[in-house]
Design a binder for these strands. Sequence first.
DNA 1: CCCTGATGTTAGCGATCATTAACCGCGGAG
DNA 2: CTCCGCGGTTAATGATCGCTAACATCAGGG
Lengths: 191, 191
Amino acid sequence: MAGRAGSDRRAEILRAAADLFAARGFHGVSIDDLGRAVGTSGPALYRHFPGKEALLAAILLEVSERLAADGKERAEAWIDDPRRALEELLRGHIRFALTEPALITVHDRELDNVPEPHRRRIRRLQRGYVEQWVSVLARLRPEADPPTLRAAVHAAFGLLNSTPHSAQELAPDPMAELLLAMGRAALLAGD
Amino acid sequence: MAGRAGSDRRAEILRAAADLFAARGFHGVSIDDLGRAVGTSGPALYRHFPGKEALLAAILLEVSERLAADGKERAEAWIDDPRRALEELLRGHIRFALTEPALITVHDRELDNVPEPHRRRIRRLQRGYVEQWVSVLARLRPEADPPTLRAAVHAAFGLLNSTPHSAQELAPDPMAELLLAMGRAALLAGD
DNA sequence: CCCTGATGTTAGCGATCATTAACCGCGGAG
DNA sequence: CTCCGCGGTTAATGATCGCTAACATCAGGG
């Protein structure tokens, strides 16, 4: 099945890189490690990406875009039902975290290693995603001020993103239910 | 015994190392960086620690011990009031996370870089700490099975430990209150 | 049939890394 | 006084790093 090998290569490299970066950290993975993970030599990667940092940037950009787009879609679909919108945001994020643990891990650990041209864009996307959650939550908790809501959303992300590290305790399905219940309760906790 | 002066230096090195490891990751910090952070040259550190990995091991061991000991103390002090025991566990962990963000960060990111003799001990301490929480929580939620409780505790740690990354949104005091409310709600969420 | 672009390979370059070696000032005990 | 060990220095070593150079293979179109 060598049919469509060419264009898949880029995605294959990014996936392998995300797994390795998640497991050992950006600086803990060498170019040769990355090449070996896709069955080539190290320098072969320079035919697809200009450098190691570009790999990381591509991973983070794609993740940030997916999260932001998905969040926007869900929030807008339930624009008049914030309770349901929050539920959908939670489900979407949880599904992503359980499906792509490596991406979630890299996404919230390695931003500092992305060089400046791309870092700003990734930050913007991340901030937009957070604000999506904040604006939904603001309608459910009108008494809370925005800084508190932002901190609460960040804390909830910490809860949801912890899955990759604790992983094997539970099967994906009950884990999703557990995270949903905990995330909802945490975000709606008055005090 | 020259205990005081020598051990000041040691503690100073460990603190600087924790800050750097938290900010840039274990592999992102060089021996020269570590030396510079305490006003000496890089190789001077070998007068106090056998190597870079030993620095990390010492940091993680101390943190794990502090958490485990503190958790045990609080849980046993309220052995007959699990509601209060959970409250105390939460407060203790939150205080630690807010007071020592670098230690918390290194503690849950860098275990894989600790070589084997010490890693096992650190893991044992960490597991003991988790079980402390689980056993308190089990009395508050008798219907839940242990794997679910363990996963819930890990998720709660993710929530509490996210502080260092979101940090500057809120002053420490309201942040502590927010985390307490969210952690309590998340852990007690029936479903 | 060759030319060319895409995608590999190995060799090598300069930088940086963790660690060791060799040396030194100094404070306090005998 | 002397000696010696503690805690520092600079220099050097071998490994590894990201990346570039130079070359190879091969498919397809003219």
